[in-house]
Design a protein around this nucleic acid. Structure first.
Lengths: 100, 100
DNA sequence: TTTATATATAAGAATATACTTATATTATGA
DNA sequence: TCATAATATAAGTATATTCTTATATATAAA
């Protein structure tokens, strides 16, 4: 694991809101609108947080109509595996809208 | 591991200079003056970085005369163990001054 | 087409972070 | 006790981060 990727991923997760987002995604895909409800921030703020996690290779997304479903990347680094295993599984923020 | 400690430790390590400091400490105790040489920053800057790592429970120190020797805390969290194991062992920055 | 909905991007402001230089503290040794 | 050395703290500045509101984009549905 290279140093720059390690630093980038650590910066991405070193934030309470983004750790909460990851907790929500432990159970599977969640769409942005549900994550907005969980964090209680504006929609653009959540979108920006998700972008940061995506750009560091921790999460990925697929579009379903106008929705966008984010999920954890399957292949996580050892450090990310350790971090994710410490997060509680927030199944409450499961995708509520009917998903394809 | 509680969420707040996790966030605090992640914030502490999410920085290239502080990751480098941890690399230096993997081999054992190092005094501040040697760490200053490694980072190439001012002495106060390094002192502040060390403080941040100490306050999050990752490193600790002992005084030896006017020197202060920092080292990794023995009992690391699983997340910190994973992070530390990814860092290269920078033995170059071993304490050069004769230590007690 | 037009309208509505979900999400992303842009711009700007508030706050946090990480340096710098100057100074304080503490221990040693002359 | 005075001077020196190692480290810490304080204050200020530059930069980065993280929100907000406004606007753009893309899809779906009327």
């Amino acid at each position: 694991m290279d140093f720059l990727l390690l630093e980038k991923q650590l910066k991405a997760v070193a934030d309470a809101n983004r750790l909460t987002l990851l907790s929500c995604l432990k159970n599977g895909e969640v769409c942005v609108c549900d994550l907005v409800d969980v964090l209680g921030l504006s929609q653009p703020a959540v979108s920006q947080q998700l972008k940061k996690l995506e750009e560091s290779g921790i999460i990925t997304a697929r579009k379903v109509g106008t929705w966008k479903h984010y999920r954890l990347v399957e292949d996580q680094t050892p450090v990310m595996q350790a971090i994710l295993s410490q997060l509680e599984n927030k199944s409450t923020c499961q995708c509520t809208t009917e998903c394809e």
